[in-house]
């Protein structure tokens, strides 16, 4: 089992980090976003447009944490789509690889890609804006795992859809995050949304993560009930999404999509 998971991780490592443009795409965006939002927040602060000095820390934390979700999703989806694009599914699925091993491998590679991609961004934030993400302390780790888990849930759903229903769903790999973004309350509190949007937002876990983040940074308070809710929601969504992914694989077997999957 570990041999096969390792095999996949080496494979995804090779394709993710194996060439300069691909490396750049993993590293570049998170850092650019930090610079962009950092300078913008500084501008607001210097012009006294905002009375609140902590705004920089809130915005940058939000940027980094949102990127955890985004990277987590992309890292998982892109690794799986790579198998479809390279028409490698047939060969892959006739090895003794088990489906849960594929699931674990995708999760691990997504984690590695996210950590590696975000590390420079955190240094950039530290260097230019004297921003210390670790202010969030233990909760940073908690938020990290919960956000990346949301990314995985989305990733498994998108991967399953592309496998089963084809290339038309590929766009979703990029778009779905932006559909979720306004409902996630990354940069603003939940009550600033219109009522209907609030109700929708509350179905998904990201909103609770970002609300908790602000609570900690602004009021220095932790709402444990919120944290439990995050865990329960996340666990449920991740479980359902993995089941969905497995279901899509099995339905692809019925439909004969794993062989001769020509373009």
């Amino acid at each position: 089992m570990f041999g096969r998971i390792l095999a996949l991780i080496i494979r995804y490592k090779t394709i993710s980090f194996g060439s300069f443009p691909r490396l750049l795409s993993i590293f570049y965006w998170p850092s650019v976003q930090i610079l962009f939002w950092g300078f913008f927040s500084n501008f607001l602060i210097e012009n006294n447009t905002t009375p609140y000095i902590g705004v920089l820390s809130i915005i940058l934390s939000a940027v980094v944490l949102w990127d955890v979700l985004f990277r987590g999703q992309l890292g998982l989806t892109m690794s799986f789509l790579e198998e479809i694009w390279s028409r490698n599914l047939t060969n892959l699925f006739i090895t003794p690889l088990r489906e849960y091993e594929l699931v674990f491998s995708l999760i691990i590679i997504s984690m590695l890609r996210t950590l590696i991609g975000l590390t420079p961004a955190i240094f950039v934030a530290n260097f230019f804006f004297d921003f210390h993400l670790f202010e969030l302390g233990f909760y940073l780790i908690f938020f990290f795992f919960n956000l990346i888990a949301i990314g995985w849930s989305i990733g498994f759903v998108v991967s399953g859809l592309v496998l089963r229903y084809g290339h038309s769903f590929e766009e979703l790999a990029w778009a779905i995050i932006f559909i979720l973004l306004p409902f996630s309350c990354v940069y603003y509190p939940l009550d600033s949304l219109p009522f209907i949007m609030q109700k929708i937002a509350q179905i998904f876990p990201p909103v609770y993560v970002f609300e908790s983040m602000r609570k900690i940074l602004i009021d220095n308070q932790v709402e444990f009930q919120q944290l439990y809710r995050i865990i329960i929601l996340n666990f449920t969504y991740l479980l359902l999404s993995v089941l969905f992914f497995l279901k899509m694989i099995s339905s692809s077997r019925k439909k004969g999509l794993l062989i001769n999957q020509g373009e």
């Binding site: 494979r11 090779t14 394709i15 194996g18 060439s19 390279s86 490698n88 060969n91 062989i259 001769n260």
Partner: peptide, 13 residues
Amino acid sequence: NFQSPYIDLPKKM
């Protein structure tokens, strides 16, 4: 095991 010219291996490796 199986081989077919219609089935590829990963191109980027």
